[in-house]
């Protein structure tokens, strides 16, 4: 069960760090190659989204956030926290099932460690997410207050990142065998977005459904992020540890499943 040893898995991936870096760079560059704004799109997209939110939720719906204790926080920022977290997951989960298919010649025709491909996908999504978080920081500085707890944000995001990575390994491997997954995932991601506290706080969920929200790592991370980044409240460390454990297990399980099934890839593709 060598694949279930997190140290060994980590060391193995670390050995390929240069290749992972190169591939990530390529993926990020490729996304915008040929467009006039280039990487600028990574900035414009969230800005446009923020503007739209302000219009729709702030002025048309006139929605009110239930956290009345913090009236100084503009609603868009609260939503943006949710979206920044969810986008990292959504971008990865939607692309993962097709990932190996897109690298077919790497699987069949060259000697290549395919297990790093999902990691590359998550890394390139992370680059975009980092830009999102940078914008969030900027807006917090302008429209709200910078709390010291902001320094905890990377720690809060660590479980999210591990969870997304695990999901990427699982979906990428499964997608090779079950092609339908590529069609199912975008729909599933949409559904999950509405089932996660992205556009509403978890406290708005009826008590009878709360249990569902305690099972969703994305929702927990979103709520924690809001606490730390906007409200300036330290996180619930017990909860954080629990999510970290679940995410870590997901990552390991994903890695183990991927390395177990990757031997069959070349036969199936």
């Amino acid at each position: 069960m060598t694949t279930l040893n997190p140290l060994r898995a980590g060391a193995h991936l670390y050995r390929h760090r240069y290749l992972i870096g190169q591939l990530t760079r390529r993926e990020v560059l490729l996304k915008y190659r040929g467009s006039y704004l280039g990487i600028g799109w990574s900035f414009f997209y969230p800005l446009l989204l923020l503007a739209t939110f302000t219009l729709v939720f702030g002025h048309i719906f006139g929605a009110r956030w239930h956290a009345r204790a913090h009236p100084a926080i503009p609603l868009v920022l609260v939503m943006y926290c949710g979206l920044a977290v969810f986008n990292l997951f959504a971008e990865t989960a939607a692309a993962a099932p097709r990932l190996i298919l897109g690298y077919q010649s790497y699987v069949k025709k060259i000697i290549f460690p395919t297990e790093i491909l999902p990691l590359v996908l998550v890394m390139s999504s992370t680059v975009h997410a980092a830009i999102n978080f940078l914008i969030l920081l900027l807006f917090i500085a302008v429209f709200a207050k910078l709390h010291l707890t902001l320094l905890l944000v990377p720690l809060i995001l660590l479980p999210l990142w591990l969870f997304v990575l695990g999901v990427a390994w699982l979906l990428a491997a499964t997608g090779v065998f079950v092609r339908d997954l590529a069609h199912v995932m975008p729909v599933f991601v949409q559904i999950l977005m509405f089932l996660s506290p992205v556009f509403y706080p978890q406290s708005a969920v009826p008590a009878s459904l709360q249990w569902l929200y305690h099972m969703n790592p994305l929702g927990i991370v979103i709520e924690e992020l809001r606490q730390v980044a906007l409200w300036g409240v330290p996180p619930d460390w017990i909860k954080w540890l629990a999510v970290l454990a679940v995410s870590g297990a997901t990552a390991l399980a994903g890695y183990a499943f991927f390395t177990r099934s990757q031997e069959e890839f070349a036969d199936v593709l």
Binding site: L30, R33, S105, Y106, K108, F112
Partner: peptide, 12 residues
């Protein structure tokens, strides 16, 4: 290994 011409090369 050169198993297929240009495998692993990215056209762009």
């Amino acid at each position: 290994a050169l198993l297929e011409l240009g495998a692993g090369f990215h056209p762009e």
